[in-house]
């Protein structure tokens, strides 16, 4: 059985995926995760979860190309340039 392991590097930080271990049960998974992701003092805490317990979503539909939902949907460079031009023109008047 595959267990996914997440580790926290410093207290208060978000957990990040560290890797996985193969183990026959949770107890073994804990021991193996400790050895693989904790024995060098690289983690303050670990989360261990059976792979099946994780729900993966990988289909993100955007049929209508609604790019305004995305941070890259508003290219600011051109708009800023135009705004600057207008400001300068206004000052010149």
């Amino acid at each position: 059985m595959i267990y996914e392991v997440f580790r926290q590097e410093r207290k208060g930080q978000a957990f990040a995926h560290a890797g996985s271990v193969e183990a026959p049960n949770e107890e073994f998974a804990e021991a193996y995760a400790r050895e693989q992701y904790g024995r060098r003092g690289e983690s303050t805490a670990l989360w261990i979860a059976p792979r099946e317990a994780l729900h993966e979503i990988e289909d993100f539909v955007d049929e209508l190309g609604r790019n305004y939902h995305r941070v890259d949907g508003y290219p600011l460079k051109e708009k800023l340039g135009r705004a600057r031009e207008r400001a300068e023109a206004a000052r010149a008047r």
Binding site: V21, E22, A23, F28, A31, Y32, E35, Q36, R39
Partner: peptide, 11 residues
């Protein structure tokens, strides 16, 4: 017998 055990037992 398995890779994870190899690491654990060696440690």
């Amino acid at each position: 017998p398995l890779l994870e055990e190899d690491v654990a037992f060696s440690s």
